[in-house]
């Protein structure tokens, strides 16, 4: 399954400073969800300091997850079933002023 992963607000610093990552997930018996995507990302994209991105089975506090620019809370959160060509954006919250 093809997805576009995007990172903003500094989250990209954990992913080689690259803001956009087109990825192809391998075929799977069970449907891909954000929960399983996070595991895949930890194993395949996130090489250093995973605790700055993932906490337990979710993202760490202070990171918003957007599916096609919509807050994952308006969808099924971790259980959202990914669809072909979805855009998943991870935004780290800024605090400077």
């Amino acid at each position: 399954m093809h997805l576009t992963l995007e990172f903003a607000g500094g989250a990209e610093l954990l992913f080689g400073k690259q803001k956009t990552h087109p990825v192809d997930l391998p075929e799977s018996q069970t449907p891909w969800t954000i929960r399983t995507l996070l595991v895949w990302m930890r194993d395949n994209l996130l090489r250093e300091r995973p605790e700055l991105f993932i906490q337990g089975d979710s993202v760490r506090p202070g990171i918003l997850v957007l599916v096609n620019d919509t807050d994952w809370e308006l969808l099924d959160g971790l259980n959202y079933q990914l669809k072909e060509n979805d855009n998943i954006l991870f935004v780290s919250t800024l605090h400077g002023g």
């Binding site: 605790e51 700055l52 760490r60 506090p61 202070g62 400077g96 002023g97």
Partner: peptide, 25 residues
């Protein structure tokens, strides 16, 4: 509502730490 939990301290950057460009402000 968006951030029920505060981020871990080591993930928080400030303008003093990492800078900011004036016109963005």
């Amino acid at each position: 509502c968006l951030y029920p939990q505060a981020p871990p301290a080591e993930t928080v950057s400030t303008c003093s730490d990492v800078g900011v460009l004036g016109p963005v402000c």
